[in-house]
Each structure stands twice: as C-alpha cells, then as structure tokens.
Amino acid sequence: MSTAPPDLDRPASGTPEHDRPGVQRGVTRPPAATRILVTAILVLVAVYFLVPVYWVVVAATKSTEDLFTTNGFWFANVQLLENVRSVFAYDGGIFVRWFGNSLLYAGGGALVATYLAAAGGYALAVYDFKGKNTVFGLVLGGVLVPGTATALPLFLMFSRLGLTDTYLSVLLPSFVSPFGFFLCRIYAGSVVPTSLVESARLDGAGELRIFHTFGLRMMAPALVTVFLFQFVGIWNNYFLPLIMLADENLYPITLGLVNWRAQVDRLPEFYELTTGGVLVSIIPLAILMIVLQRFWRGGLTEGSVKG
C-alpha cells in the first residue's frame, strides 16, 4: 500500500556528496554541534528501520528453545546453517518451490508488463490517431483504482472461466501496469524524436521494427524503472495470490511464510522455520534494492515538469 509511483527525471540517489546543495556551495560549513545533532538523529532513525532486520538475522541463528529463553538481540548457540537447511528441506523442499514461484510471478509478470506498457506508451507518444486521449484517460484512471478492489471481482470472473488456482490467475493481472504505461508514454514523448521515426520509415523500416529497434532502446532507462516497480509490486503482493490460490504448490513465498507463521501455536518448531524462512526470503530483494538504488526514482511529478 501507500506506494506512490516513480518519476523519471533523475536518479533519486547515488548522487555523490558534493551534489547536495549545502555541500556543493559549502563555503560556510555548518557548525560542528549541528552536524553532530543531525547525524545523531539520522542514526536513531536508522536504528528504528534496521532493528527488525537485525533481530531476524539473530533469530534465524537460534533454535526454537533459544528463541524463547535467550536475549533476542544477541546470539546464543549459533545454528544458522542447520536452520537454513531445515527451511530448505521441510516438506520436500516446498520453500524452494515457493521461492521459484515468486521469481516466476514477479520476473515473468514484470517482464511482460514492461514490454506491453512500452508498446502502448510508445504508440500514444509517437502516433496521432482518433481515440488517443480516451485511451490515455482510461488507463490513467486505472492508476487510481485500488488493487484490492479489483481482486475480488477478478476472482469471481476467473472462477467462472476455471482459471483460479493456476499460475495464470496470478500472472495475468501482473501483466498489466497502468502506471508503467503512463510512465512510458511520458518518457517516449520526450526521448523518441519524430524525425528519427520519419527517417527510419524512409529507409523502409516497418512500424513495428522501428519500435523494436529504436523505440525500446531509447526508452531503456524508463523500462528499467517500470520493471523494478512491477517486480517489487508483484513480489510484495499478498492479497491477489491469497484470493486466487488454494494449491500450496503454486504459492509465492509471502503466502507460504504466512502459512508457516500460522502454525507456530500448534507446532513450535515453526518458530525456527518461520524466522529462517523470513531471513532467506528478504536477502535477494534487499540486495536488489541496494544495488539498483539509483534506478528508484521519484513521482508522477514528472508529468507536471515535462507536461
């Protein structure tokens, strides 16, 4: 929830220190007291954001018994490898399967969604045709429709078509990113020059070929952003797969871990499995977020800048 969409103006981060306004023109350095105070605040806030992650790193090294009897913020008898092994081994390796499912939903969904949004956004930006504004307005409205409002009726429709409880039931809605469409339309409008499309036409290139050779390449920076957003959006989605899927073998990792979490009261060994599983599940995304940080960009505000 609470996810405002990205912007394409400039990298949100990864900018070197001297790009910050104060530092760049830092003839007058702020007084030491101010710097210490500001840094202290930033450290405190960092503790808040990192403590749950730190806790799960510690917890994943413990046996269920130690989880209850030892200090949660410090290591006791470290058995991380053992725990991770039992996460992977439980129930014939179901965790690996969930992980693979999540990769399939998020990777496959985001890839197709990015391509479709690119084609649509490019079409609106490059061509003049009747109905263009209607299409744009309709899709823009889709950005504001709460995802969970469509999930329930979608389930009812899919169950009539016999599509529920299949990979497709989660993948099909993931193929559509109204926001990506919006972003691609704005971006294509500012980076794909009409003159280039014209001259490619004179060279005898077909319309689709122009899109695939020039359009896609020029839109690449926007496409990375759209892909990342859609990937994380699908990876983090819980409501849609919860509604669509009954077969455990089709679960993404979110659903699987909630399932494990729900069993701790009856079977305490699930404490161990859940904490271990949570740790393993957040590592890949954490790496992705940090490594690709510079591709995460700001908001719909792009529209107001470039019109």
Binding site: M1, S13, G14, E17, R20, P21, G22, V23, G26, R29, P30, T34, R35, L37, V38, T39, L42, V45, A46, F49, L50, P52, V53, V232, W235, N236, N237, Y238, T254, L257, V258, V278, S281, I282, L285, A286, L288, M289, I290, Q293, W296
Partner: peptide, 25 residues
C-alpha cells in the same frame, strides 16, 4: 539533503530497505 548530514548514502539505503520486504513479511 542538508549540508550537515554525514554518510547520506548509507542512511538513505537503510531507510529504504524495508520497502523491499513485503508488507505481510
């Protein structure tokens, strides 16, 4: 973004990290 902040890159990444953790996790 102020001139007084040290290690802004680290803090930015630390604050952003939870976004990569699904709400349900």
């Amino acid at each position: 973004e102020s001139a007084s902040a040290r290690w802004p890159g680290f803090f930015r990444a630390a604050y952003f990290l939870p976004y990569g953790i699904p709400g349900v996790i």
